[in-house]
Design a binder for these strands. Structure first.
Lengths: 138, 138
DNA sequence: CTGGGTGCAAAGTATTTGCATGAAC
DNA sequence: GTTCATGCAAATACTTTGCACCCAG
């Protein structure tokens, strides 16, 4: 299961005073490889490596890692949340037919600055999900 | 509980072949007055009018009305979903301190058209939530 | 009338918690 | 050796379902 990013993940975990257990590394690795994954699929995947892993372990770790912003929860309309390894801010394109979720860097900075000014609102985070039909499903 | 919009709501319900029961009208009325409301608060509010209403009734109606697009579910980061009466497409500003959610009409059409073209993706819906600190909480 | 809606209780899912054991550091 | 994580089982939270009765149309 070890790939070139595992060392980074170990360091990152320790930065947050989280022990770098094999289960945690596997979770991050699988989330990373899938790009976006929901709890159930993650559980199925990780059981291939740790057949006795508990769902409670998944939940506990998803929660702590999300709180530490190592992972990010993406709440999708009409389906279960998916998780991703935190990257720089971006939006999501989600296909309503095949369910695929892809990242999308949009240049909306000027737009958000305008909004910030107009409403006197300090924007800390943006959640942008564009739902529709992807190229392949059209 | 009757206000000027109740007739409209009755008509709207019937357009979808949904019976205009007092419970349904109350749900729409309360959602409308609050702007955005979660299930628990809605339940508390509606019990003031129908003390024996069942949570199951709330869920069933929220579901049917959401399926018929009479109501819209807004999934918020780090908290429970809120519901609103469907209006024209808009974004949401959400204060992380007081929890207030306000509507926001943004002119992002050109942005979305660009994305549509660039990714060959047919956008049907947009979910945009900007989280941060509102004017009053700063 | 008749079909669909309501309220209750029960079932089904999803998520969290407590605790003994075990692994990371 | 200490501290924290894991895995199990139980508890809690959330949502849906089945059914008898009732009301909107």
């Amino acid at each position: 299961m070890y790939n070139s990013k595992m060392n980074t993940y170990m360091e990152t975990l320790r930065q947050y005073n989280l022990k770098a257990t094999p289960q945690r590394l596997a979770i991050i690795d699988i989330v990373n490889k899938h790009g976006h994954i929901n709890i159930d699929t993650l559980y199925e995947e990780i059981k291939k490596q740790f057949n006795s892993i508990s769902l409670a372990t998944i939940y506990k770790n998803i929660n702590t890692m999300t709180e530490n912003q190592l992972l990010l929860e993406v709440k999708l309309p009409n389906s279960k949340s998916v998780y991703e390894v935190t990257k720089s801010r971006h939006a999501h394109l989600r296909c309503e037919l095949c369910g695929d979720v892809q990242d999308l860097t949009i240049d909306s900075n000027s737009l958000f600055v305008d909004i910030s000014n107009k409403y006197d609102f300090k924007i800390n985070n943006t959640d942008v999900i564009l739902s529709g039909i992807c190229k392949d499903c059209q």
